[in-house]
Amino acid sequence: MLKQDRRSFLKTSALIGAGITGLKSKDTKAQTRHVISEDRMGVLVDTTVCIGCRKCEWACKTAHDLPAGDIESYEDRSVYEKMRRPDDKALTVVNEYSNPDPTKLPTNVKVQCMHCDEPACLSACIVGAFSKDESGSVVWDTEKCIGCRYCMIACPFQIPAFEYDKALQPDIKKCDFCIERTTQGQLPACVEICPVEALTYGRRKDLIEVARKKIKNYPDRYIDSILGDTEVGGTSWMYLSGRDFQELDFPKLGEDPAPGVSESIQHGIFAYFVPPISLYALLGGVMWLNKKKEKSKEE
């Protein structure tokens, strides 16, 4: 979306406030109320290393008490015929993209919540069920959630899933970055099991350094881009690739935080309650004037 649009919107929203002054165009950065720690952790996914063994899928289910089945059954590569998405029964899945150059190996891409720095889900949730932990994890609180599914509308990566088949206490399911394991000093289950170290867990800052170095040292292996470095304001999970990210079905997203526009509009309409209160006063005035007119007519 164009910058100009927003500015002209903010001007029109002044109109909504019925000509109230004092509504200044704010820049459209989302208001970060959550802690964004300098030392937040992240994972760097190197899709050029991943062999598509799907062990992370098994480990994830096991760590989250989801029916996981036999680890051998994950060697079946026929699942790659169709693109799969994380859902309420699998918080992460691996997809495969055949290479246009048939002499080259296909690319495997692990998909899960990106743990955004400016999470749209967090901004949107009606009851504030999401929070961004200092460790970087975006976690969901079952005590609060009312099941409205607005987080699913908001998430730019189409991640949160809902348990549609449950009549009582359906959950929103998504990767929680193994927050229970990491607070006990363990690695996330997927990172721990990965046999080829396609996943690197570390401070987000350091991971970006690592990624840049890799790109610099192997310019033939990687395209010069880290997905998640700046997308929608940055994410805790980041990807390296030898091919264009859109070929791997990553959505094309800008650098502005996903909640930015909507929060600034919201803020414009509700700036310290000035617009609604002014509208109230204005209408009260109109009512009083009309009443007076009526009276003087009667006399």
């Binding site: 949107a124 009606i126 009851v127 504030g128 009312i146």
Partner: peptide
């Protein structure tokens, strides 16, 4: 829940 659990950034709220 929204009556007591507020999220000011949420339009839905």
């Amino acid at each position: 829940h929204p009556l007591i659990m507020w999220n000011g950034t949420s339009v839905l709220f």
